Amino acid sequence: MDQSTDWHSTEPVEHKHGEYELIGDAEDPCLGMYDKPLPCFGCGIGWFSLLPGFVFPLTWYYATILYFRNYYRRDRRERAGLAASAIAAMICTVAVIITTAVLIF
């Protein structure tokens, strides 16, 4: 058996015995980018803001500000939750405007 190659290797490249090497994909350099969990208990800021927003609607507006400031470019998984919170904020704003108009007139 040849001692120059490590039998655990996934690439046909010679490795020195005892050293670790990062395994990545040459075609997709962002392969390990989404290995870390999202903030706020793993569901992301947008989805986490959506649920308490039914009690405290200001959290929807906070997520809307993050959405319009392109916070989701840091992690693409955040985009859907932030968009959902932005839509909830828009619906809340329209409901408040209609309610205010009905009460005033």
Results as ranks from 00 to 15, higher is better:
residue 1 M to Y: 04
residue 1 M to Q: 07
residue 2 D to Y: 06
residue 4 S to I: 11
residue 5 T to V: 10
residue 6 D to T: 14
residue 6 D to Q: 11
residue 6 D to K: 14
residue 7 W to T: 15
residue 8 H to P: 07
residue 11 E to F: 13
residue 11 E to S: 13
residue 15 H to C: 10
residue 16 K to Y: 02
residue 16 K to T: 10
residue 17 H to E: 13
residue 17 H to F: 12
residue 19 E to H: 06
residue 20 Y to M: 13
residue 20 Y to E: 14
residue 21 E to R: 15
residue 21 E to M: 15
residue 22 L to M: 04
residue 22 L to C: 03
residue 22 L to F: 10
residue 23 I to S: 07
residue 23 I to A: 05
residue 24 G to H: 03
residue 26 A to D: 14
residue 26 A to T: 03
residue 28 D to W: 06
residue 29 P to Y: 00
residue 33 M to F: 11
residue 33 M to A: 12
residue 33 M to T: 11
residue 35 D to C: 14
residue 35 D to L: 13
residue 38 L to Q: 03
residue 38 L to P: 02
residue 39 P to L: 02
residue 39 P to T: 11
residue 40 C to P: 02
residue 40 C to A: 10
residue 40 C to W: 04
residue 42 G to V: 12
residue 43 C to A: 04
residue 44 G to P: 00
residue 45 I to M: 11
residue 47 W to E: 02
residue 48 F to A: 15
residue 49 S to D: 11
residue 52 P to F: 01
residue 53 G to C: 08
residue 55 V to F: 14
residue 55 V to G: 12
residue 56 F to R: 06
residue 56 F to L: 06
residue 57 P to M: 00
residue 60 W to V: 05
residue 61 Y to N: 01
residue 61 Y to H: 14
residue 62 Y to N: 09
residue 63 A to V: 00
residue 67 Y to K: 13
residue 67 Y to F: 09
residue 69 R to W: 03
residue 69 R to F: 05
residue 70 N to M: 01
residue 71 Y to R: 13
residue 71 Y to N: 11
residue 73 R to V: 11
residue 73 R to H: 08
residue 78 E to M: 13
residue 80 A to G: 08
residue 80 A to Q: 03
residue 83 A to R: 15
residue 83 A to F: 11
residue 83 A to N: 09
residue 87 I to C: 06
residue 87 I to W: 02
residue 87 I to V: 14
residue 88 A to S: 14
residue 90 M to Q: 04
residue 90 M to R: 08
residue 91 I to S: 05
residue 91 I to V: 10
residue 92 C to M: 03
residue 93 T to L: 04
residue 93 T to I: 09
residue 93 T to C: 07
residue 95 A to Q: 01
residue 96 V to K: 01
residue 96 V to M: 02
residue 96 V to R: 06
residue 96 V to H: 05
residue 97 I to W: 04
residue 98 I to W: 06
residue 99 T to C: 00
residue 99 T to A: 00
residue 99 T to H: 01
residue 102 V to S: 06
residue 102 V to W: 03
residue 104 I to L: 14
residue 105 F to I: 07
